[in-house]
Amino acid sequence: MKNEVDQQWITKAQQGDALAFRHIVLHYAKAVNALAFRYTADAQHAEDIAQDTFIKAFQAMPRYRDDYKFSTWLLRITTNTSIDHLRKANREMALSLSTDDEQIDVPETHQIPANQHELQDSLSHAMSRLTDVERLAITMKHHQGYSIAETAEKLNIKSNACKQTLFRAVQKLRQQLTTEVSV
């Protein structure tokens, strides 16, 4: 996350100043959208979540306390909104947990991306092949730094199930990606 927004905008926005909140939106818009995109692997969903996140954030501004960073607070709203959004989008998260035994349909061999653009497409494709729960779990754990226990609680699943979900997600992603590492 880039530098935090100036405290004065937060204070004014807490008092209901919409123009001050505009500064906050301009400052964090891309970060919120990027996280939403990681959760959904879908640009349209990410856009909807970003909008909902900021609308909810404005209404919740009076409850924000500076015990932790504003960006942390805002991205937690993004996470919760993403989970709600995927549930509402009728993507059966529970069903995805029952696909443990399904064979992962991933090509065993693939080309090393020729350039950055291809690499990004490949990664986006890999993410989109994850189930919603897997994508949420791997993003919360790896990108947002939630513990397994916290991730499990947020997704309303058991800790062991969360570990399995994470494991499957990592496996799927790695099967999609070939990375050369120089030793």
């Binding site: 209901g16 919409a18 909140f21 505009r22 939106v25 301009l26 400052h27 818009a29 891309k30 959208n33 990027a34 995109f37 990681r38 640009a43 990410a46 970003a50 909008q51 900021f54 609308i55 404005f58 209404q59 950055q116 690499l119 990004q120 990664l123 986006s124 890999a126 993410m127 790896h142 990108h143 992603l173 990606l177 990375t179």
Partner: peptide
């Protein structure tokens, strides 16, 4: 690689666009 490469390309003025879309929905 996932951390750094997975991106949703957004225009430079994305923040302004987003504000235009939500400004009339914001209620105190």
């Amino acid at each position: 690689a996932f951390e750094t490469q997975l991106q949703n390309p957004l225009p430079d003025d994305y923040g302004h666009q987003l504000w235009q879309r939500i400004s009339d929905k914001i209620e105190r």
